Computed example of a mutant assay.
Amino acid sequence: MEKLKCIIVDDEPIARDIIESFITEVPYLELKASFGESAKALVYLEENAIDIVFSDIEMPKFTGLELAQSLTNPPVIIFITAHRNFALDGFETGASDYLVKPVRFDRFLKAVNRAKDYLLLKKTASVHQINSDRIFIKSEGKLIKILLNEILYVEAQGDYLKFVINGGSYTTLGTLKAMEEVLKLPMFFRVQRSFILNLEAVRSLNGNMIELIDGKNISVALNKKEELYQLLGIK
């Protein structure tokens, strides 16, 4: 299976080292970055697609709970804490699990297996590609046909995807990461964490803001801007 991309957020270097060593023992996990400050992790998460975040709760300036609450489309979050009484607060922010320090490998593995099963469930059965020009999505209890050239954009909304087409929209369970395997170049481009655009739907550009033909304004991630301009033939 495709590896699940992870990051670690903890102000204690030893704690980060332990989780890093655990990740290397799990074949389906891939560590993409490790942060000692949650504010830096937030910037990274806004511009990069990550499957699992291992985050300490208690951190100076910007806590793990505040990090989770700041994310518009959060990945799976597994909190790490030295205090069991913080667990309830963690679950209220949408965390999938919590690990108590010192973290045992067997407990770590149980948490990531649960996260893996959840992510696999999200990726399957909600979107069906029939051929190269159309898909069917499960929405409102039925299968709805959408022609790819009708799609203006797809927006991630928590565990769901919103497909906006000419004349309407539909919502279904799924992830943008899974949709990138269906909505590809040269027609579609993921401009930031929460949006995949049909390049033909772009009406105008102003700095890092995109206006679409339906009037929707979307920001482009800084690390995607140059590629977007090139795809649109702008030098």
Rank of each mutant, 00 (worst) to 15 (best):
P60S: 11
I234H: 01
G207T: 02
G94I: 08
I18P: 00
K123W: 00
F35I: 10
I7N: 04
E37I: 13
E46W: 04
G90M: 11
M1A: 11
T24Y: 10
K138F: 09
Q192T: 06
D17S: 10
K225P: 00
V220D: 01
Y44N: 04
L222G: 10
D89E: 15
L120C: 01
K5V: 05
A68P: 00
E37Y: 12
K3T: 10
I50G: 02
R190A: 05
L29T: 06
T171S: 12
V26G: 05
R114E: 05
L67C: 10
T81A: 09
F22K: 07
I137E: 02
A15D: 05
Y118G: 01
F188A: 12
E180H: 05
F136S: 06
S21E: 13
I78V: 14
I210Y: 05
A39R: 15
L183T: 09
A82Q: 04
T171I: 15
Q230Y: 06
M209S: 12
F86T: 03
Y170D: 02
K40V: 03
V220Q: 03
D10E: 12
G215R: 04
E30C: 08
L176D: 07
I80F: 07
L232K: 07
A49H: 02
I23N: 03
T24K: 14
V53Q: 09
T93I: 11
I80A: 07
G168L: 05
K184F: 09
S219Q: 12
A95C: 08
H83T: 02
D214Q: 06
S132C: 01
I213K: 15
V164I: 13
A115K: 07
K184I: 14
K235P: 00
V43N: 12
S219A: 12
A87T: 08
Y44M: 08
S96V: 14
N48C: 06
V9P: 03
E2Y: 03
I18G: 03
S204R: 11
G94T: 02
G158R: 08
F105A: 09
N198A: 14
R190Y: 04
P186S: 10
F62V: 09
I8V: 15
E200N: 15
G167S: 01
R203L: 14
A221R: 02
K101E: 01
I165P: 00
L88C: 00
T24H: 11
L99D: 00
A125R: 11
V112I: 13
D106Y: 08
S139R: 04
V220H: 03
V154G: 01
K142P: 00
I19C: 07
A201S: 15
L231Q: 07
L71I: 15
D117E: 14
K116S: 10
I144T: 11
G207S: 07
S139E: 02
Y153R: 07
Y98E: 04
L71G: 05
Y160K: 10
K177G: 11
F91L: 14
R193E: 10
I130W: 06
N131K: 09
Y153C: 05
P186L: 12
K101V: 02
K123F: 01
A39F: 13
H128N: 10
S55L: 12
F62E: 06
K162Y: 02
